[in-house]
Amino acid sequence: MLRQIARPILAAAAFACLSGFTIVWDKPASETGEKAVPQTDEARMAAYAQENWQNKVVPVIEEHVVPLAKLRGLVAESADKAGEAYGLRPEGEANPWNFAVSGEGKIVGAKLKSRAAKLEVDTDGDGKGDVTIQLGPVIRGTALRDAMPFINFTDFRDQIEFAKLANALNDVAHGRLSLPESDPTGETAHFEGVFTLRGDAASIELVPTKLTIGG
């Protein structure tokens, strides 16, 4: 995206050089209120994730969210049918489905003192955790990125930039959570989020976009 902006500028500059004109900037970009272009992949992708979160990411989740129990029923019949009905994935062979789900359940385990903090939630009442809610700050996977229809790998420079984008979206999700301060084991978690379906949906690893504990 940024390269698309940079290209006409470069072209204009090249034209100016070739034709003997000199471009005189009225003011440096920093004084005209335009943001300076962030330099690292990480910074650029972080800015992209922030910019698009409210206007683009949230509406996709709201539009496609499905109750987890219902989704599990559908996946048990046919993962592809469930995917066709509610799933989100990039085009192309062998891309797994991603789903936006909502649900609730009893917290049966919590690992809070970790860079990859998580809650284990029992949503089907058998006493065992079947949803892992990733609290971060390190959140695994590319579910959020790959669920977004407006994000195409082709628009990004390479896999490195594209991986940073997945992490940046996970970071925004993490930043919007209010995390439990004490061990919430035994309490109820109400959650909404995105996950990548691998195998059946018996145990899923969720990137939460909403989380309330208690009640």
Binding site: P90, E91, E93, N95, F153, T154
Partner: peptide, 9 residues
């Protein structure tokens, strides 16, 4: 019928 850049797991 596909995007140019495609990832395979």
């Amino acid at each position: 019928g596909q995007q140019e850049k495609q990832l395979m797991d």
